[in-house]
Design a protein around this nucleic acid. Sequence first.
DNA 1: CTCGATGGGTTTTTT
DNA 2: ACCCATCGAG
Length: 698
Amino acid sequence: MDPLRHDTSSQSVKDTSFEVEDVYEDDELTLQQSNGFAEADVFSLQEQQPTSRDDTKVAVDQKAPHRSSSPTHRLRLSLNERQLRAVTFPLQSQLQILAGPGTGKTKTLISRVIFLLSQGVHPSNIIVTTFTVKAANEMRERIAAMVGPSVASRLVLGTFHSIARRYLIKYGYLIGLPTGFQIADETDALHFIQSVMKEVDPESDKNDCRHARNAISNMKSRAIQPSSLSALEYTTQEMMQVYSLYQGKLAEANFLDFDDLLLKCMELLRTNPLVVSNIQAVLVDEFQDTNVVQYQLMKLFAARRSNITIVGDPDQSIYAFRAAESTNLMRMRQDFQDTSVVSLEENYRSSGHILNAALAVIQQDTERIQKTVLPNHDEGHMPVFFPARNPYIEARHIVKEIQRLIDLSCGMLKPHDFAILVRSARLTRPIESELTKAGIDYRIVGGFRFWEREEIKLLVNYLVVVKSRRSPALLDIINSPRRGIGSVMQAALLNHANAYQVPIWDAIQRAIDGQVRVNAKVRSSLKQFVDIITEAERLVQDSSRETPLADALDYLITALDYKEALRKDRGDTWAARWENVTDLKEHIRYFCATAPDPELPDIDGVEGTKAADDVLSRFLATVNLAPSEAESSAFDPTMVLTISTIHGSKGLEWPVVFIPGVYEGSIPHALSLAKEVDLAEERRLLYVAMTRAKGENI
DNA sequence: CTCGATGGGTTTTTT
DNA sequence: ACCCATCGAG
């Protein structure tokens, strides 16, 4: 027998299961259950939502033949007692599922969704929020595997941000939001802040801007308005002024930043609750990481029936720096006095020794609420502590250990069974170079994200300019690749734009037309630049093409001679960068071929805006909200090891986990040493990292 | 004016 | 390793 495989049949838990068959056929939901939770074996319910008229496209699955003769979607879930109780908890109530690491949290949440469907709740009347886009996609896939893609695709499922965006696109006009708003990513936001900061404090540098950006985002996450006086307890008059001016700039350019998406959606639902009147159930994953605004949004989503299920674990709250408040758990119990709590205590993931070590870390927090953890595995191996003199020795040791374990297990452990989890993205460097020396492939999640890479951002910014002629993006690309438009020329253009109150794009046009004095060389460069953009725009809008967006990108890359530019400019890293460009091309082709986000259901009595959602805007929104890495599929996925920040590792697990840099200054981070609340978060961070280890009964 | 070379100072975590 | 400020060459 495979000694590394966890043998589930030895579980002491009572196995309970239910099956869903032909769940969705012609608007009828059928559930078949066995030895499960209800007396009736089979019952079916009419799709009963009068407020939803999302019936036009239902026929997709109709070609599925009848139950008796067809292969049916069949699902068997084995749940333990607590999980089952949570899954089948009565509707029209509030439920908190407190689930420690490795207790089957996601499985329980998914099963609850299936349960709700089986109870006749229409999928488009269920909102499920997840913490990342990746988690949302995985969840949709797993649900689709059980109930079919047409049901799964109708769930309103995504991050708070992406769901908010969908509501705002459709109903934003109700609160006077201009159509076609754009989402400001981190770079855009910083650009705006920068220009505001210059006005307020000409001495300010980039670091001050970052600081301001964080401070403002934190206020917005708490729903503090720029006009709020009480905010002065937190921050300075000056900062509030920056905040206020920043909001002005955003509005002027028709931008919403991440926080605005949530705030505007909150405003929308407060003033127009009808918009979510169809919603029968709201489920929130990673509840301990929601901020106040998200909590309010959750309540607003559920305003009609107050049917709320949340899953969370205060011990894994690691986003307080982003204004997440795990006290939302208590807040919810106060707001909804009948809230029930189910704790999942059985840990199916880690060995006993690992759990004990992890608990020893987190129990140092005296404020913490004690929790029962029942290891389902044997004690297993002791975790190893290796004191290293410096990062290079540490990296070498880790890589040697990985090679040793692979050899020792006779290839049973493959590189993809290993993860290296770091506190800060930059700590990966020595490790990367050791891995490269050893010839082990790795991928990095979090940290240097695909979409944040310079070459990717540049090309995306070209697309942004093609779409909107947006000034921040325009300034980013105007001299990249180098075309002789230096900072002085840029300042001149900017000046002209400001003086005449026109967009920078127009200033460029005027320079070409000779209304602004420039020398011939610059003029021809500008002309060339403008031509490239207009030609790309023509391609994007050419509806006779199959993949206009991908074609436009190809054109841009060729016209810019981007490969050559990289080779010339980027020394030894140009090849890797070019590879990223190839990945981007592939990603866009794939994107062109994929279906858009499902539309929100129409609500009787509320006019929705038909999403004028062309490929390019959809793509750009995806880039902003879902900076997931584009999986480079070139190599064997089992031969790839994972490097991730601890934050990025949440919800994942590996047989072997290394946590480098566990020393004061790294974990806990130097910037967190001053305050006990921050230290507590660092402890939880280490706890999360340690509990990623999937213990095996060897 | 632009560009490339040179040298010094640096970085938490992210939707 | 990357970002920035500075400076001299074209």
